[in-house]
Amino acid sequence: MPDPLEAGWNNEAVCEVVEDNAKIRVLKCTFAPGVGHEKHYHNPHFGYTLAGSQFRIKDTTGIREVNVPTDYSFSKEAISTHEVLNIGDSTAVFLIIEYK
């Protein structure tokens, strides 16, 4: 299964590396309306929403639709997997900070 950098949408990259050093890797992931992120895994990480939208999320708990607001932060302490799709009408941008 790909990590968030390797995973894309319809063979197009959605994330880019902003910083990569001995302690962290920072990704900036951008999702225009109708663009998602194929199923992928995340190592433990902290995330921050630079610009929010509405998403359909599919993970181990099922499928749900959520509004992800701008300036929202989240974190996971364990490896996780999911697939997402921006079903809103605005472009969403996230920073993902992965711990090494």
Rank of each mutant, 00 (worst) to 15 (best):
F55K: 05
H37W: 13
T91G: 10
N43L: 12
A7T: 04
D20Q: 14
G47R: 02
F74H: 11
K76V: 07
E16R: 11
F55E: 12
C15P: 08
V17G: 03
V17H: 06
Q54I: 11
G47L: 04
C29S: 04
G52A: 09
Y72D: 13
N43E: 14
R25F: 00
F55W: 14
G62N: 11
E83D: 07
F31I: 05
E83H: 03
Q54W: 01
I79A: 11
F55I: 13
G52Y: 02
Y99H: 13
W9Y: 13
G8W: 05
G62Y: 08
D20W: 01
P33G: 08
L85P: 02
V68P: 02
E16C: 01
N86G: 10
N86F: 04
K39P: 01
I57S: 07
N10K: 15
A7M: 03
L95N: 07
K28T: 03
S73R: 04
P69K: 14
K39I: 02
P44S: 12
K76E: 15
T60R: 14
E65N: 12
Q54P: 00
L85A: 02
L85H: 01
V66Q: 13
K76F: 09
H37L: 14
P2M: 06
Y41R: 09
E98I: 12
D71P: 00
V18F: 05
E38H: 10
V17P: 01
P33R: 09
V17Q: 05
H37A: 11
L5W: 04
H42V: 07
R64H: 10
D20P: 00
V93H: 03
P44L: 12
K58Q: 13
G88W: 09
I97P: 00
A32S: 14
T30C: 07
M1W: 09
V26G: 00
P4W: 01
D59W: 06
E98K: 12
G62F: 07
A51M: 10
N86E: 06
F94I: 07
H37Y: 08
T60Y: 12
C29D: 00
T81S: 14
P2K: 10
P2H: 09
V26K: 01
A13Q: 14
A78D: 13
N21S: 11
N11T: 12
G52N: 05
I24A: 03
S53C: 11
V26A: 05
N21H: 09
E12M: 11
H42Y: 10
K23W: 08
E38A: 14
N21Y: 02
K76P: 00
N86V: 07
E77I: 08
F94T: 05
E83M: 02
C29L: 04
A7C: 02
S73I: 03
T60S: 15
T49V: 15
E38L: 07
S90C: 09
I96H: 11
T49Q: 12
T81H: 14
